[in-house]
Simulated scan of single mutants.
Amino acid sequence: MPGTFSQLYIQIVFAVKGRQSLIAEKWETELYKYITGIITNKNQKLLAINGMPDHIYIFIGLKPSCCLSDLVREIKKASNEFINNKGFLKSKFEWQKGCGAFSYSHSAVDNVILYIQNQKEHHRRRSFKEEYKEFLIKYRIEHKDEYLFDWIE
Score class of each variant (00 low, 15 high):
Pro2Leu: 15
Gly3Trp: 11
Ile10His: 02
Ile12Tyr: 00
Ala15Ser: 15
Lys17Ser: 15
Gln20Pro: 00
Leu22Met: 14
Trp27Pro: 07
Glu28Cys: 11
Glu28Asp: 13
Glu30Met: 07
Glu30Tyr: 03
Tyr34Asn: 08
Ile35Ala: 01
Gly37His: 07
Ile38His: 11
Ile38Asn: 12
Lys42Pro: 00
Lys42Tyr: 10
Ala48Tyr: 10
Ile49Asn: 09
Pro53Val: 08
Pro53Cys: 06
Phe59Val: 00
Ile60Tyr: 09
Leu62Arg: 03
Pro64Ala: 09
Ser65Cys: 02
Cys67Asn: 15
Leu71Cys: 03
Glu74Met: 03
Lys76His: 06
Ala78Val: 02
Ser79Trp: 11
Phe82Gly: 05
Phe82Ser: 06
Leu89Pro: 06
Phe93Ser: 03
Phe93Ala: 03
Glu94Lys: 03
Trp95Arg: 10
Trp95Met: 04
Gln96Trp: 01
Gly100Lys: 09
Ala101Glu: 11
Ala101Lys: 03
Phe102Cys: 10
Ser103Leu: 08
Val109Ala: 05
Val112Asp: 08
Ile113Glu: 06
Leu114Met: 07
His122Ile: 00
His123Trp: 09
Arg124Cys: 12
Arg125Leu: 12
Ser127Glu: 04
Ser127Trp: 09
Phe128Gly: 02
Phe128Gln: 06
Glu130Pro: 04
Glu130Cys: 05
Glu130Met: 07
Lys133Pro: 00
Glu134Pro: 00
Leu136Thr: 05
Asp145Asn: 14
Ile152Trp: 03
Glu153Pro: 10
Glu153Ile: 11
